[in-house]
Design a protein around this nucleic acid. Structure first.
Length: 968
RNA sequence: GGGCGCGUGGUGGAAUCGGCAGACACGGCGGCCUCAAAAGCCGUUGAUCGGAAGAUCGUGCGGGUUCGAGCCCCGCCGCGCCCACCA
């Protein structure tokens, strides 16, 4: 499908005629207007490109201090950019230009995260190859972004879908695949070292047999058991209707697919995983070394979810009533409450459930809630498991849901009390966390309390509540006591805890458990290993093949990239939507000629089957920052010299990494955790000198917008809504306002192109930077954009003749007030820009310019620094002014103005005189005024004397030269 | 439920250290220019009272610390974001 040529492309205005439109006779020809801006911007953009102004030299320049500046790269969607998207890009550009003018070597570019679902869905609907759609979208994004005049190095822009890029994504996958985590060394190492450790007996094989006794498959399994990328059978959200597994985020509360509304099943499937959990402690600890927003660090800490506690073994009673040596291990953060454990719960999927269910109920008089009315325990457990499997993770974990569960018929022994406790299965215990089994302490855990009340289980208090409730009468308790307190009722034959505090009791129980061999202190994480395969077409193929025995083989580097094959149909092989037992078959499985290959992997040509899953969209974004450094290298993913220069640690404590990474907070966890993980593996293997990818992170806010709906709830064009009589109106119809995202479907979207057409890119840039602090979200207001245009117009008019375009600056010396204001402005602008507070920097520039408006003519000595300070925000207009002021070369590398410290301070300052803290007078004083002189002046003030009403001051506090406060 | 953050004019926001609350901008109002409109320019714009000079009030609410609080402390109320049966 070919787009027709756009009919509304305006012919470029000739330079002299800019602004001379029909009906525009009164407007001076060289007034800074949207039309003139368009001409200036096109010209300077062409020149920067032709001159390679922002191309960064391939070789590091050791003489210049470097700065690696990055934005989170976009997914190029089909709907193009709205004005909210480039907020961060403009901010990094402003900052990069500011640094460049201070002599820094700035590396700044922008790539595309171009694998992903929308292009694939579009392909399924239309048959258009995702590559075609993706490339068209990337081109559109490039064109839209180019209009903003960003000082990117155009030679370094990469797309994750480029074969030359994903070749290295596959290569890095193989690095991870061929690594294992050596807990003793605390780092990733090549699997060759693992084999050596197995051979020498230094490490035991998973099943304990000597390496020499293992056959080919046994050895492969032993290595696979420790690889950082491995295949495992894990519970996933399987949606047969879509033919793919889904992330939890893609499943609705009703347990159906967000797209298509098909049923989703919890299903054990064999998938690729990445062993990110091995790095949990390092990912946690290194957060302390990063200059990141505290909120993002907190989110990552919570996501990793480290918690300290104890593993405790509860011996099981054999189904026939005798002891058989089996035990269930539980994880608890409250070992101090062990005496209060009155029952146990296993997750429905727990592997010991089957072993523990007896053929018949152990007693005839069990409560109906325990047996669910089933004739025998096996039937009850099976029915419960089926019901649990039909629920999605979301349903299952919704808090406040009534506790459900069923008695297994089995019993275990509380190791401290020696009492028999019943074992239940219930879905409030999650198979994937801890050991998938808990000891239930209903008195001191709200979930256990709820369950105990529902199933009539004993509630035994072992911590004396601090709120006066009676520990011997838990029947009267409204809820569990989860707070601190003194241990009670916890005295057994070999362990007594009564009277201890919670922390002391924890230590005592852990020590006792370890002494008895019944448990140990341990650490558990919420973080799970990363599900790394998808049944999709538009993603990186795995560089893996399987032999006839089903053993995986990695492909040698010489066979990379494994290119995506052409297929006729991008759809996964969909099954009956209600058939949760079917297996997914990825779209690549249909490319038979591609799947079945004959390769020589070292032992002669053999038949292999290719892996047909693809990598998730996160893969490319896990390492793209490194490729920016060395985008054309076809021998390695990045030259180590370049990595060391741009990202290497600067001090022994420094992690290294990108100097500033700007993007939205929505990536606080997944992208930023996955890329940290990959980077650490690459670091451990010696490929990169930095131990973290992003040294400093900044989250920009979002530009949001109002949307309006009519009575029927239909969105109306926001641009045409007016506010009147305290309400909002679309024509004669009242409409309802809501606030949120910008979007085509909400009819409130404003594109950067239309702003560039009306006002120019410089005005748009300036407006976006002046709206407020960069890290705060705020509403877009098109009508306010004109303020930024007016500012540029006034600067232009202060420096140039609006009729001729010739400079009007003089070579006279500025008056003292102007000179002082200039230097104070330079000083403030430097400080504000250094802190990314662009809104206040712009306000200072406006104040300076407003002052210049009052002068008969502007001295060049003031005009030039103003233009240079404006350059990061409005680079095209600044370049043009700079040229017209007589400078032939670009100002991109002109030194940013430096304030003369002697001229920053004003000759006099306003001293406020307060009476009882209320300002009563203002006196101009010498900035170096003494305390006694300040007090004298203050007390001499008529206004102060009037406020005192003739009385004598009790006390005078003077902080010269700012304030004197007289206490009456 | 837990964690984090935020409440300032009609609007977006400013106030770096506890020291002139409201910088800068939008919008509004008045004026200039214009046949007229748009654009542009000048003035004005927290509220109340006042002709004015000026006075009083004012940073979500209530208290506290301080010579002095938008800022610090305590308790509420409201909003936003993240996590959420994680043992």
């Amino acid at each position: 499908m070919v787009e027709p040529p756009s009919p509304d492309v305006a012919a470029p205005q000739p330079a002299g005629g800019a602004g001379r439109l029909a009906g525009d006779e009164g407007v001076p020809p060289q007034r800074y207007s949207g039309a003139l801006a368009a001409e200036i911007e096109a010209r300077w953009q062409a020149r920067w490109l032709a001159d390679g102004t922002f191309v960064v030299a391939a070789e590091p320049d050791p003489a210049r201090e470097k700065f690696f500046l990055m934005d989170m790269f976009p997914y190029p969607s089909g709907s193009g950019l709205h004005v909210g998207h480039p907020l961060g890009y403009i901010a990094t550009d402003v900052y990069g230009r500011f640094l460049r003018m201070q002599g820094r070597a700035v590396l700044h570019t922008l790539g595309y995260d171009a694998f992903g679902l929308p292009a694939e869905q579009y392909a399924i609907q239309t048959g258009t190859h995702p590559r075609v759609t993706t490339e068209a979208n990337v081109e559109r994004y490039r064109a839209q972004i180019a209009r903003l005049g960003l000082a990117h190095d155009p030679t370094r822009s990469v797309s994750t879908t480029d074969e030359a890029f994903y070749r290295w994504t596959q290569w890095i996958f193989l690095q991870i695949y061929n690594s294992w985590y050596d807990q003793r060394a605390g780092r990733a190492r090549p699997v060759a070292d693992l084999v050596a450790a197995y051979e020498s007996g230094e490490l035991p094989t998973p099943d304990g047999r000597p390496w020499a006794d293992l056959d080919r498959a046994g050895r492969a399994a032993a290595v696979d058991a420790r690889r950082l990328a491995y295949r495992a059978t894990v519970p996933v959200n399987w949606c047969p209707g879509l033919g793919t597994v889904l992330a939890n985020e893609e499943v609705t509360a009703e347990g159906r697919s967000e797209r298509g509304n098909f049923p989703v099943f919890r299903r054990e499937l064999t998938q690729w995983m990445m062993r990110i959990t091995a790095f949990a402690d390092r990912l946690l600890d290194d957060l302390d070394r990063l200059d990141w927003p505290a909120s993002v660090k907190t989110m990552q800490r919570n996501w990793i979810g480290r918690s300290e506690g104890a593993a405790v073994r509860f011996p099981l009673h054999a189904p026939d009533g005798g002891a058989d040596g089996a035990a269930v291990e539980v994880f608890t953060t409250r070992p101090d409450t062990l005496f209060g454990a009155t029952y146990m719960v296993l997750a429905p999927e727990h592997p010991l459930v089957d072993a523990l269910v007896p053929p018949a109920w152990p007693a005839a008089d069990l409560p109906a809630s325990w047996t669910a009315g089933a004739p025998d325990p096996r039937g009850a457990v099976e029915a419960y498991r089926r019901a649990a499997a039909a629920l999605g993770e979301r349903d299952r974990t919704a808090e406040g849901r009534t506790k459900t569960g069923v008695f297994t018929g089995g019993w275990a022994t509380n190791p401290v009390t020696g009492e028999a406790v019943p074992v239940f299965v219930a879905d409030y215990v999650l198979a994937g966390y801890g050991t998938g089994a808990i000891m239930a302490v209903p008195a001191h855990d709200q979930r256990d309390f709820d369950f105990a009340r529902a199933f009539d289980l004993p509630i035994r208090a072992v911590i004396a509540p601090g709120d006066g409730r009676d520990p011997t009468d838990t029947a009267a308790w409204p809820d569990a006591w989860t707070g601190d307190g003194t241990v009670v009722g916890s005295a057994g034959p070999s362990l007594a805890l009564d009277g201890l505090g919670v922390e002391e009791a924890k230590r005592a129980v852990v020590a006792w458990l370890e002494g008895q061999g019944l448990g140990r202190g341990t650490v558990t994480y919420k973080l799970r290993d990363w599900l790394f395969s998808r049944q999709r077409y538009w993603g990186e193929p795995f560089p893996i093949v399987f032999d006839d025995d089903g053993i995986a083989h990695d492909l040698p580097e010489s066979m990379l990239p494994v290119l995506l094959p052409e297929v006729d149909d991008y759809r996964p092989v969909a099954a009956d939507p209600d058939d949760g037992a079917s297996d997914p078959e990825p779209p690549l499985a249909k490319a038979r000629d591609w799947v079945e290959v004959t390769l020589d992997l070292g032992d002669g040509p053999r038949r292999y089957r290719r892996e047909t899953n693809t990598m998730p969209q996160w893969a490319g974004s896990c390492w793209y920052e490194l490729r920016y450094l060395d985008p054309d290298d076809d021998r390695r993913f990045v030259d180590p010299t370049l990595e060391a220069y741009w990202m290497g640690p600067r001090t022994p404590d420094d992690t290294g990494g990108v100097d500033l990474y700007v993007g939205g907070v929505e990536h606080a966890v997944l992208h930023l955790l996955y890329s940290r993980f990959w980077h650490k593996v690459l670091h451990d293997l010696g490929h990169v000198s930095s131990s973290e990818p992003f040294r400093r992170l900044f989250n920009q806010g979002y530009i949001q917008a109002y949307a309006y709906t009519d009575r029927r709830g239909v969105y109306v064009p926001a641009e045409e809504v007016v506010e009147r009589d305290g309400g909002y109106w679309y024509g004669d119809e009242p409409v309802t306002r809501s606030y949120g995202k910008m979007g085509k479907s909400l009819r409130n979207s404003v594109s950067p192109d239309e702003m560039c057409d009306r006002y120019g890119a410089d005005t748009l840039r300036l407006y976006e930077m002046s709206m407020g602090p960069l890290d705060v979200s705020r509403p877009w207001e098109t009508r306010a954009v004109v303020g930024s245009l007016r500012f540029l117009q006034r600067v232009w008019r202060n420096l140039l003749d609006e009729e001729t375009g010739a400079p009007t600056v003089t070579d006279t010396t500025p008056d003292p007030a102007t000179e002082q204001l200039l230097h104070a402005t330079i000083d403030a602008v430097r400080t504000e820009m250094g802190g990314l507070r662009f809104n206040t920097a712009i306000a200072k520039l406006i104040e300076l310019n407003n002052h210049l408006t009052s002068l008969p003519a502007v001295p060049r000595e003031v005009a030039e620094p103003l233009v240079l300070m404006l350059a990061p925000f409005a680079p095209h207009a600044a370049e043009e002014l700079w040229r017209r002021l007589g400078h032939p070369s670009s100002l991109a590398f002109e030194p940013f103005p430096v304030a003369d410290a002697a001229k920053v301070a004003a000759a006099t300052v306003t001293m406020v005189v307060q009476v009882n803290g209320k300002p009563r007078d203002r006196i101009e004083v010498d900035p170096a005024i003494s305390e006694s002189a300040a007090v004298e002046l203050a007390l001499a003030s008529d206004r102060v004397r009037a406020a005192l009403g003739g009385g004598e001051p009790k006390k005078v506090v003077a902080k010269p030269p700012r304030v004197v406060n007289v206490v009456a």
